[in-house]
């Protein structure tokens, strides 16, 4: 489904070359929930940006649903991103002038979905994240946790195959972080593939599969495949995360 082979990313300044990723190999299957951990500056976000086609890679092969991403034009990448990928950011990245309904509507508009269908999906997603009654509120009228739920709803509205989350609970207190994590797990159970970058090892452990990025390379695979999904679901209701 997602395959990276020998991916490298080099940031070039006048005198210095910085290797953000090198020989990065990863295969992600449909329905997986992967937590990506690693120290600051290790390349986690760079990996996520490349996975989300938000920035180009320097070398290697990247296949997404049998599409060779390296051969796509900018517009084709934008289309593919819009069709297949949903983003959840640490800073929520909601557009302040737009109310919740309109924020969720943004990716749907770019996809050219008709108004009635947009409305149906937005209402469904707002319902899912428990903010149906706040559709006309502006982001700044909500708490951080609520804003992140809106961001999740926005990511879900496009029915993406991949959900890429960059420190989705990084700006939240523990209670809100737990609620967001439970929501992500629920979304994963419904079939979405999730790749989540996090610093929080407790949070990472809740994901069935962990990968660690160190110095731009995949350093260690810790597969929690022995954990049955229902175990994770059982944990979902507990305050497992220590903020």
């Amino acid at each position: 489904m997602l395959s990276m082979k020998n991916i490298s990313k080099v940031y070039q300044t006048e005198k210095v070359q910085t290797h953000a990723l090198r020989d990065f190999n990863l295969n992600v299957d449909e329905g997986e929930f992967i937590a990506v951990t690693g120290p600051s500056g290790s390349g986690k976000t760079t990996f996520l940006n490349i996975a989300g086609m938000l920035e180009p890679f320097t070398g290697g092969d990247f296949m997404l649903d049998d599409v060779n991403v390296g051969t796509l034009s900018d517009n084709q990448r934008a289309d593919l991103r819009n069709q297949k990928i949903g983003f959840i950011f640490q800073g929520f990245n909601l557009i302040p002038d737009l109310n919740l309904y309109e924020n969720i509507e943004v990716p749907l508009r770019y996809r050219g979905i008709k108004s009635a269908e947009r409305k149906r999906r937005i209402e469904e997603c707002l319902e899912k994240v428990g903010l149906a009654s706040r559709a006309k509120h502006l982001p700044q009228q909500l708490s951080g946790g609520q804003q992140q739920r809106v961001a999740i709803a926005r990511a879900l509205a496009g029915k993406p195959r991949f959900l890429l989350a960059d420190e989705p609970t990084g700006n939240l207190d523990s209670l809100m972080a737990r609620q967001v994590m439970e929501l992500l797990e629920e979304i994963n159970r419904e079939g979405s593939t999730i790749i989540m970058v996090t610093h929080d090892s407790e949070l990472a452990r809740r994901a069935p599969r962990n990968i660690q990025v160190v110095d731009g390379q995949l350093a260690d695979f810790t597969l929690y495949q022995n954990k049955a999904m229902d175990e994770i679901a059982a944990k979902a209701g507990q305050p497992a995360i220590e903020a």
Binding site: A78, N93, R111
Partner: peptide, 16 residues
């Protein structure tokens, strides 16, 4: 530019 970054991430093409 930050808002444009969000829109681009959400699927807007350069042309749009």
């Amino acid at each position: 530019a930050p808002e444009v970054g969000v829109r681009r991430a959400l699927g807007a093409s350069k042309r749009q």
